[in-house]
Design a protein around this nucleic acid. Sequence first.
DNA 1: GAGTGGTCTAGACCACGCA
DNA 2: GCGTGGTCTAGACCACTCT
Lengths: 238, 238
Amino acid sequence: MDSPQYRPLYSQVYEALVRRIADGEWQPGQALPSEQALAMQLGVSQGTVRKALDALALDKVIDRRQGKGTYVAELTQERSLFRFFRLTRPDGQRAVPTSGDESIKRRHARSSEAKALELPEGVDVFEIIRTRFVDERPVAIERIILPEAYFPGLDQHSPLPNALYALYQREYRINIVSANEKLRADVARRDDVKRLSVELGAPLLQVERVALAVDGRRVEWRLSRCDTSTLSYDVTFT
Amino acid sequence: MDSPQYRPLYSQVYEALVRRIADGEWQPGQALPSEQALAMQLGVSQGTVRKALDALALDKVIDRRQGKGTYVAELTQERSLFRFFRLTRPDGQRAVPTSGDESIKRRHARSSEAKALELPEGVDVFEIIRTRFVDERPVAIERIILPEAYFPGLDQHSPLPNALYALYQREYRINIVSANEKLRADVARRDDVKRLSVELGAPLLQVERVALAVDGRRVEWRLSRCDTSTLSYDVTFT
DNA sequence: GAGTGGTCTAGACCACGCA
DNA sequence: GCGTGGTCTAGACCACTCT
């Protein structure tokens, strides 16, 4: 009497397609079958397939191009960075970062990390620490926590690519679709001074992010400390 | 050969409805006619009206309630603050602020303000300065610039309500639907110390916002300087 | 011209809120 | 039980892309 027990057809189609994309049936950049073909295959009307595809496009899992077809979204460097790396030049141009000074190690999750990722205490995680550069200048330090269970053998991929989310998608079929961030102002401490060329006590923007996969799992916890003296952190609300 | 010259019907319906809502034909909180009635009235199919209404609901201009009807959204204190005031308690609860120490004056726009609002140089604007409190503690200073032409007589409404966007909607039929923000970390200066109970040099989160109305006009420029020692600034990306 | 996604229509039935 | 929005279908035509 309290749990709905009712799921619209288009939402079931949505999930079925997500699963097949995640399973690699269609690779990023490849075209899906046409709406008509999918409708026949799934035994629903073309309008229902359309509604599911529209929702997938909203979640940026697919790209739709009129006259051409429907394509599995590529989380290429540009798309993924433009979407989640938000440091922006004064003229409004989104900056594209490079990485350096990178380390990855495997350890047990601290309780705060386990809580943020909704994992049992003490499970194995990877911890990545790296410095981000824009125009050769260090602008941010990132500490990234990933459950080992979701990313087996991640430490074999070192050096890690610039765009981690493209790696998650390509190697682990994990599609990041949204992120919750908590922002705070803080001052530079000794560790910050070492990696960023700022003075002790300089203001830093601290961003604490939890990234969610298309299936709702909390996949990544990330703490960034950013020097916003030359770049700003741009967001849009609707 | 290059400008499209083609506008989908549903998007024309969207604009017609926005205009009628802005003109006050239906007041916030009131119900619109049913989909069928609107379809008859406008001479389009019910499905086309639905598509326009769905888009309006996405832009939060209206509320749809199954079994009841479609209502003009009320930008009440809760809704508007929950949407655009993003300071959040450690437990994830969105804070609801109060205002104090408020001043409003009319003056000419500075060139940076005119540029941010895409106005001619030197037009008249209102400048509001106020302190925001959460649980009786000062947490942010706001400086707000509004074009006088959009908000004639605004200084007559003092003291201003806690939720400005509700006032914009109620008194001026201006519906804020989105905002672009630039965030930076900064340190407290003398003016900040006076209004916020922080020390000189304490870290502050500076938020520079341009708010956009449903018709795309840039309606408000706002600079907030926030003490994030007890609250965090929460955002979600999709 | 053929094939794709995008728009538009008309009509049926379902879930919800309320009297 | 009635009226509302929500879902689903089937079919037509339009705009875009490529050959």
